[in-house]
Nucleic acid binder design. Structure first.
Lengths: 183, 183, 183, 183
DNA sequence: CATGAATGAGAGTTCATTCAT
DNA sequence: CATGAATGAACTCTCATTCAT
């Protein structure tokens, strides 16, 4: 609900109705709407972080790991019902009134990017990725691919087409960053 | 104002004050807040479209044109005070209550993407861009680069660093899509 | 309404309904309920202060002035529909969330007590009031007489009885503080 | 808690926490918050009544008794942490939703005033107090002295100053009502 | 046409009260 | 009896929209 409709479009009444409890009950568990959203995001980010680690350790090379990670996130996004990464990504814009919670969120996001940074630098060290490119650029290009904004217009119900899109994005990205271009 | 603070964070009072007219006067020209925002976006999109065309015709090859376009949009985004593309991009998420206006916006967005699609297909026709990649993928990868969400965290006041980021993103993208990589 | 039912017992809906305007309209003129109450009190205190001065200047001796002042306040209180002093007195307990407004209120209350203090010290100087009594005690005894809490139970509709009560309170007070006892 | 912070500022949660039982348990013993407050006041009033009687029987003359009573109440008030009389006095303003309980409270308050009325009339009978003054006036003047509202602004931590204030108030009051002034 | 005070539906939040455990 | 999570009515406050001037 919150993940799909957004912060302002989702009222506490709606949330309560959707969860099947009374509005006041929410305030037993969360002191404010912001706190609720932050807690939700925190949970999602933690799940996402765990997912990242699980995905990474299933592969050995930096390239394979980064590619698997890209597929993992894309799969999540293409499931149409926005999920982990989507909710996180959507929330990075907002300014919450709870500095402490925001700090926790920022810390988690940092840990997420650290994983990717590690993969990139590892790949550069092993000679898999270009050393001429800054980590910053490769990181930015990586996460840019998951801009749900534009994805929405490209989502197709056809499983095959979606898969093909992901494959080609992977090709574009890795041709761009990898040392040996495939063409 | 609307472009920077967002739809919900900008009240009609603020808009009126900023424009220098009375709040009631706005409703003479626009039937609702949504209509106002849509009209604003429409104007921005039209300007942006004109900007695209101006940029494109300054170059001859598809590659040069697409690269110039990328730089044009990036410059807009990096100016920090969100401008044309930024306001458009930000608004694509929202669901307005005015179907007719939304349709006009959709039409304009389509005309924008058509420009890029034309460049891509032209480049494929001339052999500049890979024919194996679908237009969809190259289009998606192109607009993904402008995810302001993630850009925010990478914006730096240092002009030189920003420029370097753009250069490297261009390298990644075009190495990925172009037939002959330049490195 | 607010004066009679008290802060917590009077909702903004009630106030709006009583004044004959919409709830939202109140917030055009006052930023919060506290601000509204403080403004109301401020106005009452200013009126009261003006009333005090008007009463005082109608008499010449300290004794006559203080007595007239006592009658003035009592008359206000006995009118049953709580008025100036009553609303002020009732509000001295509350803790508002607007420090600035509270400071203004405190300043006004100080100016009110200053008038009485001046009368008392003047009377001591002229030999009308006992010099052995501290100003503080005479001041406190004076304002204590207007404790609406207890007054409520003694208010009678009979004009004559009310007047007699006031007369006797005056006698008790002034016999207590004046140099020459009457008895 | 209730005595100090007031009815509206004290929630059932706070009361439960303070008493050390669960919130729901309160409702086994008291049907409502009003009933709880009324019961608390009733207990306080009964204690106060017992205190009055204890104080009175320690002295013989009406004058001594009334003076001792005045000191007794004042001491309670000056202890800053509001106690018996204070809680009672504070509650007389409120309008409870339990007519029966309010009646019991009213009855107890009447019994309290009856003690004072008895002292006053006894003193008039023995010639200690002026017969010209109505019992009502002397009663009202007596309880007026305990207006906590104004007392707050005069409370000082200095034990000596507080005592001096009480002494002078006693002098003012008794000079006002007694037949022979003592100076 | 322009104005801005007035509107009122709806938002987030609180808290006395209830009831399954 | 005791519990405390759940309830929902009522509160304060916001803001897009209207309309008499």
């Amino acid at each position: 609900m919150l993940e799909q409709k957004g912060y302002h479009e989702t009222s506490m009444d709606e949330i309560a109705a959707r969860v099947g409890i009374a509005k006041g009950t929410i305030y037993i568990h969360f002191p404010s709407k912001d706190a609720l959203v932050i807690a939700l995001l925190e949970r999602n980010m933690q799940k996402f972080l765990a997912g990242i680690d699980a995905v990474i350790e299933q592969h050995s090379t930096s390239r394979a790991r980064l590619e698997a990670l890209l597929r993992y996130i894309m799969t999540d996004l293409l499931q149409k019902q926005m999920h982990l990464f989507s909710s996180i990504s959507h929330s990075l814009d907002l300014k919450y009134q709870e500095p402490e919670g925001e700090a926790r969120l920022g810390g988690l996001w940092q840990r997420i990017t650290e994983r990717v940074v590690a993969l990139i630098e590892e790949g550069q060290a092993t000679g898999e990725f270009k050393r001429a490119l800054s980590t910053q650029a490769m990181l930015y290009a990586f996460f840019s691919l998951f801009a749900t904004r534009h994805l929405k217009k490209h989502i197709v119900n056809d499983e095959h087409t979606s898969q093909r899109l992901v494959d080609q994005l992977i090709e574009i990205y890795f041709t761009g960053i990898a040392v040996e271009s495939r063409s």
